[in-house]
Design a protein around this nucleic acid. Structure first.
Lengths: 201, 201
DNA sequence: TCCTTTAGGTACAATGTGTATCTTTAGAGT
DNA sequence: ACTCTAAAGATACACATTGTACCTAAAGGA
């Protein structure tokens, strides 16, 4: 065992393929969170990942695509646990709280810092939203299904618009304030809008 | 009257003060609309206004402030006419349509293209929203007041959250799709969410 | 008519972009 | 163990944009 590894058990000094790509995307996401889309540069991403810009350009054509890839990766990391408290009200409030904790930051990043990106490419948020928040709609669905079984919710009232209204308003609040949505606001969304629209009677 | 103006009634060749500032802000807004915040450059603004960058930098410290100034100017230009059709439903739908026509583009610009700006400065959208959409909330209020008089709306149900719900959802739709909100969507917001929440009975 | 302000022009260093080229290494196949 | 190829990492380049500085020339009030 020499300090200079001249034997055959040499540790790779150079990252490759998927491992390198993951490092790049993580670096990109961190840069995005720290600097925002505007001050986000390919150069600083490469530097953070301790490599050169060429490596980045080999994978993504430019800033926009790299940011998108990083956002998608960051957004599809953590799973989602659907609350089941036995009450529609507390389930929904808990779901919003959860979104607040786990994805508020992400949502803010996505929505705010990517404005430039979407105007460049002409893509809508909806696309990315569905990628990131997939399972969110179905979470509300599952909660509502149980509420219907318990007789709390009226299945006839559950149109797509009504089902989505809680998260639409939550998202709107998030985008407008750029801060985690306070519990009182979440409760007002559920109590004043969501529950009146879905409740039986 | 010679072609070369050598007499004392000489037309100013050089714009100054407020006039020049207006030209600069208009040029900035046009650039913003055409290119988006990312490809928006001080250089192209100066060029469009047929002046030099120095003139721009003399007034605004940088891109963010110029964009903000241009957006505020563009946003505070046109007034708003409150529909009065005799029906709460058609009033509200007409109000959304109006917003669609007159400010959809503006809203999209504001909200999307300024993402970079707000993350830079830490300001929230709410501030700018209230500047631009001031009178919008009161428009809904006025429409609702008349609806209460007609017995269409229940005054007891009119919490701030409920009053704002139509425009919150409208704005959400606008931000998600980056397109003018289709009539069907506006109608679904009014019919499936707004009216059920405010209607008497 | 003078005088102060400021528009407009130009030059600058600094920074980021995207491309190209080169050397070096990882790791699969023989 | 040896070879070969794909890819990493390191420059170097031309180009665009930024923000500053400095100069001149016009505007318009005193």
């Amino acid at each position: 065992m020499s300090l200079k590894e001249d034997s055959q058990d040499h540790v790779p000094q150079r990252r490759r393929g998927a491992a390198l790509e993951a490092v790049l995307l993580d670096a990109a996401w961190e840069e995005l969170v720290e600097k925002g889309y505007d001050r986000f540069t390919i150069e600083s991403v490469a530097e953070r990942a301790r490599t050169s810009r060429a490596v980045v350009y080999r994978r993504w054509p430019g800033k926009a695509e790299l940011v998108n890839a990083a956002a998608v990766r960051a957004g599809t990391q953590q799973p989602n646990i659907i609350p089941d408290t036995g009450s529609l009200r507390t389930d929904m409030i808990e779901l919003l709280r959860q979104a607040n904790r786990s994805r508020a930051q992400l949502g803010v990043q996505m929505i705010l810092r990517l404005g430039g990106y979407y105007t460049e490419t002409g893509t809508g948020f909806a696309e990315l939203r569905s990628a990131i928040l997939s399972g969110r709609g179905s979470a509300t669905r599952q909660i509502l299904d149980r509420a219907v079984t318990r007789g709390e919710a009226d299945p006839a009232k559950l149109t797509p618009r009504v089902i989505g209204v809680a998260f639409d308003l939550y998202r709107q609040e998030l985008m407008m304030t750029l801060k985690a949505v306070p519990d009182e606001v979440a409760e007002s969304i559920i109590d004043e809008v969501f529950l009146p629209l879905v409740s039986r009677r």
